[in-house]
Design a binder for these strands. Structure first.
Lengths: 205, 205
DNA sequence: TTGGAATATTAAACACTGTTCAATTATATT
DNA sequence: AATATAATTGAACAGTGTTTAATATTCCAA
């Protein structure tokens, strides 16, 4: 059935074209300001066609969202090699920030943007399964730190959430441009500097 | 000049009506999904009138933004009474979180939303003057802590930014609904629990 | 090779959006 | 009461997401 195969391939190709166009437009103009017509223009098809490949605009976002978590998961993969949980925790933070700043559009999509969370609320999609998987990994590492005697007197859930919040807070303030107004000496490196402070804090715990 | 006075008063009244309607709609539906026609409907005027009171939709946002910082500044006012900088820092965090969760719409407007930062970039409006003022206050308190021997080995700017990021991260994850997907035992109180962890961390520094 | 079925794609339409502006209504002054 | 001024309107423009009937293309069997 070579023909059917080719058709599947062609359909897949257009799907990828739509996703690529949508992604680059989301980066350029943001989710809200990207229109279906914009996407259709870029791939040189009529707007209607998009609704034969995706239910609606949110589903396009949703698909990219999932891809984002997969990319992040891939990057976190190397952490398995790090034996010491404290070192792993620090490396996790570094990779997290690196990913966020290098793919700020994706990060925005994954952790900041408002649009389509309701999509994920009821259905347990792969998407936030990945997402909560990432958080579970963090918790796992924090747990190992606790077991080793670090972070004495801390609650696992609360501490894990706080750690996540710290790195998320830094990158999201940066991404949403709340750092350049704040009159800091080295605004450009503030996230890196902040992360160094974060590492120092971890060492003292 | 009683007539002119009344006219000014009436104009001011309609301005306030527009702002009140816009605010409540922003809370209900969010900034993007609130239309000028929605606002006009609520105050029972035609859409056009709004453009005689505000330059555009962004200016409405901008005005509310400023009000948000004023309200926050007011709340931070009581901190002047707290002598001990460490205690003041903790209280600051508590007030910040309290404000953010009680006025999540405003907080969203002030620190998360993307829309109209370009408005503030060139002009030095009262708005982010207030905003950076809040951060300057934080820095001032952190400085006093450093002077008292706390936070040894830390850089002022970096540590202040990290502290701000931690509280911002917690409330923004909550506001943008990234906490209810994460499968935590007590999701409802996670920000409070996280803040307790934060306080414990401060004590160990 | 051709006819018909299946599929892919389109263009037009619907109800919405922010914004502008000429026309209208209401108010104030002379 | 007539006129000047200010406030308000509603229609229009160009854009949005989405649906759908019509069209174009591709496929397979006769």
């Amino acid at each position: 059935m070579g023909i059917a195969d080719r058709k599947v391939r062609e359909k897949e190709e257009l799907t990828q074209q739509i996703l690529a166009a949508a992604k680059s437009l989301f980066i350029e103009k943001g989710f809200e300001k990207t229109s279906i017509r914009n996407i259709a223009d870029r791939i040189e098809y009529s707007p209607g066609i998009i609704y034969h490949y995706f239910k609606d605009k949110n589903e396009i976002f949703h698909t990219l969202h999932t891809e984002g978590f997969q990319e992040m998961g891939k990057r976190m993969g190397i952490l398995a090699a790090v034996e010491n949980p404290m070192e792993r925790l620090k490396a996790m933070g570094r990779i997290y920030i690196e990913f966020a700043l290098e793919n700020s559009d994706m990060y925005d999509l994954m952790f900041i943007i408002e649009a389509p969370m309701h999509h994920l609320e009821d259905k347990d999609d792969d998407c936030w399964t990945e997402g909560s998987g990432t958080f579970k990994n963090l918790k796992h590492t924090v747990k190992q730190c606790l077991d080793k005697g670090y972070f004495e007197g801390h609650n696992l859930d609360a501490l894990s959430f706080m750690i996540w919040s710290t790195v998320h807070g830094m990158v999201s303030l940066k991404i949403r441009k709340r750092t350049d107004v704040i009159e800091l000496a080295e605004e450009e490196q503030i996230v890196e500097k902040g992360f160094e402070s974060f590492l120092k804090v971890l060492d003292k715990l």
